[in-house]
């Protein structure tokens, strides 16, 4: 296969970037998209040019490191697929593809297709955890979890934090990511003590980081490689509103060191 690429090249945040055209010949349809870029990069290195920088780690769709826009779609055209798991057989010989980095104020560009997603780490640090006393692991099923809650929590826990939802959102909102974390933890018994503080802190942090707001457009859901459902956003909104109304109680609880 022959693939024509237009790739966003930018040395660093302060220098201007531009689209550069490349032709990749002899693309094997069984290659993943990233392997195709590896091949191109080898050629570039041999020609003495800088290889294209892109993020990746596991290359099996579980770590959340990879991700960029292919023809205006985060992670490319295949639903429920990270770009590392996207195979070239989904494209046609001679296809022309435009690769751009995820764009959001909260995801500043580092180089080429690599952006800094530390804002997600700060969202987690603000409240996306459960405080426990470290010790020996609890017995399985020591805390009963209703089946429905367990399933929904597992679905939400599938989020790998790739940032595609932010990238695709017309408003660069982090609502799907936040909703996934808040649902994952808020549905389980272990997540209850901090449930309302968590949502207040994470939602506030997202505003500080400069993410946009959710207009319920649903683009995030369509590109999420883990098929996180829009309903997690409704759950977050619900918890946020309850928390905002009950804030006084929560504040007192925090001051008293409860939860």
């Amino acid at each position: 296969m022959r693939i024509i690429l237009h790739v966003w090249r930018q040395k660093n945040a302060s220098e201007p970037g531009r689209m550069v055209r490349y032709e990749v010949n002899n693309v094997n349809p069984h290659m993943s998209f990233l392997e195709m870029l590896d091949v191109l990069n080898e050629e570039l290195v041999q020609q003495g040019e800088d290889p294209i920088a892109f993020d990746h780690d596991c290359r099996e769709g579980i770590c959340g490191m990879c991700g960029f826009m292919i023809n205006g779609r985060a992670h490319g055209p295949e639903p429920g697929t990270t770009v590392c798991q996207l195979h070239m057989r989904h494209f046609r010989d001679g296809d022309e593809l435009w690769l751009e980095p995820f764009r959001a104020r909260a995801f500043p560009l580092i180089r080429d297709l690599v952006v800094n997603r530390s804002a997600f780490d700060r969202l987690i640090a603000a409240g996306g955890y459960i405080s426990v006393n470290a010790g020996s692991a609890p017995d399985a099923n020591a805390i009963p979890v209703p089946k429905q809650a367990a399933e929904k929590a597992m679905d939400a826990a599938a989020c790998i934090g790739c940032g595609a939802c932010v990238a695709q959102c017309p408003n660069a909102s982090a609502a799907l990511f936040l909703g996934a974390k808040i649902s994952h933890l808020g549905l389980l018994p272990q997540g209850q003590p901090e449930r309302y503080q968590r949502v207040l802190k994470m939602v506030s942090q997202a505003a500080l980081e400069g993410f946009g707001h959710c207009t319920n457009a649903g683009e995030c859901e369509a590109v999420c490689p883990k098929r996180i459902k829009l309903e997690v956003i409704a759950r977050m909104n619900r918890d946020y509103l309850v928390a905002a109304v009950k804030h006084l109680g929560v504040k007192e609880a925090v001051e008293a060191g409860v939860g």
Binding site: R103, A104, G218, E219, A222
Partner: peptide
């Protein structure tokens, strides 16, 4: 929201998203 994405995409598909929503 306009501040949340200072650099626009050159290409962007508005995936399923309802015309009405946008």
């Amino acid at each position: 929201k306009r501040r949340a994405r200072p650099v626009r995409y050159l290409k962007k598909v508005d995936v399923p998203s309802a015309y009405a929503a946008r």
